[in-house]
């Protein structure tokens, strides 16, 4: 697997700038809270840590919420580090609270 973690964008051609543009935007979202709804209706809230071309997303410090039926909010189940396969993602929301809360995944 190629690892672009520490690579710098290389604006050689116009095409390359386009490519890095998508990556740069994704990179801006790293360590920000995501809210992902899965195909079975569960909602996961966790820190966005990693993704790939198939939209497999890794969330850190993740909690699972069951879709609330009848307005009652249910206890979350704490999951920790999870990987959500892209094909099971229905929607992704980002936490746009100001100032943006960043959650670092520290040792």
């Amino acid at each position: 697997m190629t690892d672009t973690g520490s690579e710098q964008p290389q604006p050689d051609t116009v095409k390359d700038i386009d490519i890095t543009d998508g990556k740069a935007k994704l990179r801006k979202w790293l360590n920000v809270n995501f809210r992902i709804e899965m195909t079975d209706g569960r909602v996961l809230i966790g820190v966005f840590l990693c993704t790939d071309r198939d939209a497999n997303v890794i969330l850190g410090a993740c909690s699972e919420y069951l879709k609330s039926s009848g307005g009652e909010t249910e206890e979350p189940r704490v999951l920790g580090l999870v990987m959500v396969p892209g094909r099971h993602i229905v929607s992704i929301q980002i936490d746009d609270t100001n100032p943006p809360q960043k959650f670092y995944y520290d040792e």
Partner: peptide, 15 residues
């Protein structure tokens, strides 16, 4: 994510 190569991971390399 379509801008990523096949198998390429986008992540914060330090952490």
């Amino acid at each position: 994510i379509q801008d990523l190569q096949l198998g390429e991971l986008l992540h914060d390399g330090h952490l």
